[in-house]
């Protein structure tokens, strides 16, 4: 049968910053083709196809319905694959190869992580599970 794609509404103007992204305006409707855990979603808007930030979208049908997994305060061990310097006060600065506990995997790709006594948001694309062995 036909593939029915989820429709989302754009909640903020977004200007593309690379050629595989698409520019969006508040109120645009997009159909989601793929949801990547790094917070970039592949979608169609009119005749354009490209990546857009999940944080700029809300579900058309049930905007208040939580889609996210519940936080896991026990934490899940991950290791940073890139350094990142916090730009907002709710983010965490970390160097490469630091071990952190992921406590909330947010769909926008900015996971909540704990390092010692500090918690903050960190890009999920710079994290890999500590349980997974990388190929040599």
């Amino acid at each position: 049968g036909p593939i029915v794609l989820d429709t989302y509404r754009v909640i903020g103007d977004f200007e593309k910053t690379s050629k595989h992204e698409i520019t969006l305006q508040t109120g645009d409707l997009v159909e989601i083709v793929e949801k990547s855990t790094n917070g970039w979603w592949f979608c169609q808007c009119d005749t354009s196809l490209g990546w857009v930030p999940a944080s700029y979208l809300e579900p058309l049908d049930a905007p208040e319905e939580p889609e996210e997994a519940e936080p896991n305060y026990a934490g899940e061990l991950y290791v940073t694959t890139m350094a990142y310097k916090a730009e907002l006060e709710d983010e965490l600065s970390l160097e490469v190869d630091e071990e952190v506990e992921v406590i909330h995997k947010l769909l926008d790709g900015w996971w909540e992580v704990r390092k010692g006594d500090e918690t903050g948001h960190f890009p999920s694309m710079f994290l890999k599970s500590a349980g997974r062995k990388e190929p040599a």
Partner: peptide, 22 residues
């Protein structure tokens, strides 16, 4: 390929959304 997502972290949610979530 176009199916490769961008290599940079996506922008944070618009400020209004962050306030709503907080």
């Amino acid at each position: 390929s176009i199916k490769q997502p961008p290599q940079n972290p996506p922008p944070r949610p618009p400020a209004e959304m962050r306030r709503k979530r907080a």
